[in-house]
């Protein structure tokens, strides 16, 4: 396995999908693909994502989350028991968060004994690359975000507590399979405080012996954000999370609040979003370098890793690849400035 350079580059998780991925998923939904066809396609999509990331020169890669059919959790909702779909209130017109399929809990939420399949995904990825890899999993609030507590649970936090148990089991399986870097993603956290988010993070990662990342963003479905784009209200409570690294979005927010880490960093790692995944404007290496320098004004370089703001799951593949290349090139520029080496 390669050792990591100063300012290592990584991704949040999802990679831009090829056109054939979308056509194939549709073919599966209309019955033109069998499960075997779908599995073959997913394997190939992962291979493609890995190859794109390797060619871009990313230091720590993922499987591109190419097996997740619709963002973070929809794939998993299909295999969870004791949840029932609710009618979708709006189906016509432009996409919105109100068009998502939601569920209601009708009993104790149960997952298949074999888990969600993250372990098998990880094992596949491990065989496909010699690069350092990171496993990613939705956080407990995000996992429960579209499940109404119904009568089975007292509220969204109790649903999240149940998912923390489920996730914990999954993460321990990942560690047993060799994963040494795991990131929990908590984009859909409702109106829960930073301190409560930290408590749930700690439940989900209790006894999980790996480097832990905590990605918090403001929403990215189809490039649209969803929350007030400020981290300040979550601090300092969120620092109670036993995360080794907080992975935050800055590029699409004109680097606003990048100074936060000076106040709150406490020597912890910062995965800094220095590439805008929402805009089609191609970030040039010098744009990325300028953003990295801004991050380094407030955080020591040894504590910083460089990532795009969020996943590329809602971006076309060509855009994703352009931006990954600029991420790597921008990192090289600043690395050279700091160390005289590339």
């Amino acid at each position: 396995m390669e050792s990591l350079p100063l300012l290592p580059t990584s991704v949040i998780g999802s990679h831009g999908k090829p056109g054939w991925w979308f056509a194939s998923v549709k073919a599966y939904e209309t019955g033109e693909f069998g499960p075997g066809d779908l599995d073959e396609m997913f394997d190939d999509a992962v291979n493609t994502a890995v190859r794109d990331m390797e060619e871009a020169g990313i230091d720590v890669i993922t499987d591109g989350e190419a097996r997740r059919t619709d963002g973070y959790v929809d794939t998993y909702y299909k295999i969870i028991t004791n949840i029932q779909p609710l009618p979708v209130q709006r189906k016509a017109g432009p996409w919105g968060y109100d068009m998502q399929q939601r569920y209601e809990a009708v009993g104790r939420i149960e997952t298949p004994p074999a888990g969600f399949g993250l372990v098998a995904d990880y094992e596949y990825l491990r065989k496909r690359t010699r690069k350092r890899v990171k496993a990613t999993c939705a956080g407990p609030l995000t996992f429960g975000s579209r499940i109404h507590p119904g009568r089975a649970y007292k509220g969204v936090v109790e649903v999240a507590e149940r998912f923390a148990e489920v996730i914990n089991h999954e993460l321990k399986g990942l560690v047993a399979a060799g994963a040494d870097w795991i990131q929990l993603d908590e984009p859909a956290r409702g109106h829960v405080s930073g301190e409560e988010m930290a408590r749930l993070f700690n439940l989900a990662t209790d006894g999980v012996k790996a480097k832990l990342g905590f990605h918090i963003c403001f929403g990215n479905r189809f490039g649209r954000s969803r929350f007030l784009r400020s981290y300040e209200p979550y601090f300092p409570g969120i620092l109670k999370a036993r995360a080794d690294e907080f992975v935050l979005e800055f590029a699409g927010r004109e680097m606003s609040e990048v100074e936060l880490w000076q106040k709150y960093g406490e020597g912890r790692g910062l995965g800094a979003g220095v590439v805008d995944v929402k805009g089609f404007n191609q970030d040039r290496p010098e744009d990325v370098a300028r953003r990295i320098r801004k991050v380094l004004e407030h955080t020591p370089a040894e504590k910083v890793s460089l990532v795009p703001d969020c996943g590329f799951g809602w971006s076309p593949r060509y855009m994703c690849n352009q931006k990954l290349a600029s991420l790597v090139a921008g990192a090289q520029v600043v690395r050279a400035e700091l160390t005289g080496t590339r």
């Binding site: 432009p94 996409w95 189809f222 490039g223 649209r224 004109e254 929402k278 805009g279 089609f280 404007n281 744009d287």
Partner: peptide, 13 residues
């Protein structure tokens, strides 16, 4: 402005 194709910009902002 910097573009707004399905809520996404295109220009350098």
């Amino acid at each position: 402005c910097f573009g707004n194709l399905l809520s996404r910009p295109r220009g350098k902002r």
